[in-house]
Design a protein around this nucleic acid. Sequence first.
DNA 1: TCAATACTTAGCCAATTGGAAAACTATCTT
DNA 2: AAGATAGTTTTCCAATTGGCTAAGTATTGA
Lengths: 109, 109
Amino acid sequence: MTNNLNTLFSALADPTRRAVVEHLVQNPAPVGELHAAHDMALPTFLKHIKVLEETGLVRSHKLGRVRMVHIEPASLQQIDDWLTRHRALWETRLDRLSRLANDMDRTKS
Amino acid sequence: MTNNLNTLFSALADPTRRAVVEHLVQNPAPVGELHAAHDMALPTFLKHIKVLEETGLVRSHKLGRVRMVHIEPASLQQIDDWLTRHRALWETRLDRLSRLANDMDRTKS
DNA sequence: TCAATACTTAGCCAATTGGAAAACTATCTT
DNA sequence: AAGATAGTTTTCCAATTGGCTAAGTATTGA
């Protein structure tokens, strides 16, 4: 909730962590299941989960000896919001490019 | 263009670099002007510009002794695309939360 | 109760990162 | 031609990061 974009972007910069997020947008899952998809030692993997949890992208709670992890959608929304704040401007620039490309096509034929 | 999300996200994880991107979605600008807004040595700042350029978020060319920098909108589009690929799923989860919040409100009154 | 399961904690390490200072090159401006 | 401007290159440094192994704790199943 209190997360800034720095930690959100840097959390998502790691492919392992991004894969975990992609897994969790589909369903919550226990640490063991998440870990199975990644060829690294468990303690290493747990560090990634901890990073995700510290940024607020993810939450978890223990059920017996299993830790269930689920996504925190509001955090992804923050990145979406940042993009939205600038989207209008960069899309203008994209449009300009595609118009230019169109013009060049027409000139060629 | 050939950029992966790893480098895009990690480039945007730094507040200096994000500020430069925000500046450049408005207008292209010379290095000196960009640097003026940031309290750090020029060589340090230039490293950030180089990172942005290597990820493809930005391009530059020299005009005399001045280097002009401009944004490469297609790169931001890549991040937007990644979010879009998952947006449907996490918005479903957000909806579920807000419905739950609604229910709790109604129960309270 | 005892072994297996599912994490957890603690330390260690190499590579990367964000910062600095110093010295250098290339372009104007006068 | 000389000085000022605008970057550039080089070298150094401390902190962070992503990975490992080894050893520990807490639950569960037989």
